[in-house]
């Protein structure tokens, strides 16, 4: 138990296959992510990044093995686990008809916050993410970058200890990307473990300290980003990625 708690995420001998597509499966997958890490999960399209993230967040259930978050089994203690992490999906997973304040009120309540906590966190987040001026406007009229920030704010409203981010900066301009990355670094400095996927490898280099490369539902390499580059004699993560996964289309 004491060992398990040193990890934010601990995956042991996990097996998973979709019922309608058993060939797409993970076998004997092991992964450990320490508390406070900025962990990047990379791989070509179809490698299994989103599926693995869905397994870690309990959206999918493993057929065998164990997944625990901060020592709590994801399947057995789903209610406890769901209070520990936040999730920022790739899609704009909120109500575009509502304003940022109304979205945060709703998702804050569903995250278990009180009215006072919601109000306090809403003010904080809208200020930090530069959304204060549009706090009462309908999100559907926002730019893509502003929607991304709303998506992020909802994921962190309850101050999660672990934050899962599925391509949080896709389709945004340079300014918004910098703002989001800087905010994530600050969040990590305050103790939040980040688990992040992206195809923006240069961005990932600047954010992550630990990475895992995933291909064909297998972890092909894993470790500290600088050690991996040194070991494989590459200057950038992109070179390492191409070297290990090839240049063919992978969809």
């Amino acid at each position: 138990m004491a060992v398990a708690e040193t990890y934010a995420i601990n995956i042991n001998d996990m097996e998973f296959g979709y019922p309608d597509n058993p060939e797409v499966s993970f076998t004997q997958l092991n992964l450990k992510i320490a508390k406070g890490e900025r962990f990047g999960l990379f791989g070509p399209n179809g490698a299994g990044k989103t599926t693995l993230m869905n397994l870690m967040t309990g959206l999918l259930k493993a057929n065998k093995g164990h997944i625990s978050l901060l020592g709590h089994d994801v399947d057995k203690h789903s209610n406890t686990v769901s209070k520990l992490f936040g999730f920022v999906p790739q899609d704009f997973s909120f109500y575009q008809e509502l304003s940022p304040v109304e979205n945060l009120e709703f998702f804050g309540a569903w995250s278990g916050l009180t009215k006072k906590q919601i109000s306090q966190r809403t003010d904080e987040l809208l200020d930090i993410l530069g959304l204060d001026e549009v706090r009462d406007k309908q999100v559907q009229k926002f730019s893509g970058g502003m929607k991304r920030r709303v998506n992020l704010a909802i994921g962190v409203i309850h101050n999660p200890q672990i934050l899962f981010l599925d391509e949080p900066t896709v389709g945004v301009d340079v300014q918004t990307r910098h703002a989001i990355i800087n905010y994530l670094k600050k969040l990590n400095d305050s103790g939040t473990t980040l688990v992040y996927t992206s195809h923006q490898l240069s961005e990932a280099e600047g954010l992550c300290d630990q990475v895992a490369l995933l291909d064909d539902r297998k972890i092909i390499t894993q470790g500290n980003i600088h050690s991996l580059l040194k070991e494989h004699q590459h200057k950038t993560l992109e070179e390492l990625f191409i070297d290990l996964t090839g240049k063919e289309y992978r969809d």
């Binding site: 967040t57 309990g58 959206l59 999730f87 704009f92 997973s93 909120f94 109500y95 569903w110 995250s111």
Partner: peptide, 17 residues
């Protein structure tokens, strides 16, 4: 379609609410 359902599933509240 928007993914709100998926996000709600990750939160500590039953969807019956």
């Amino acid at each position: 379609v928007s993914g709100s359902f998926i996000r709600l599933k990750t939160l500590p509240t039953n969807y019956w609410v």
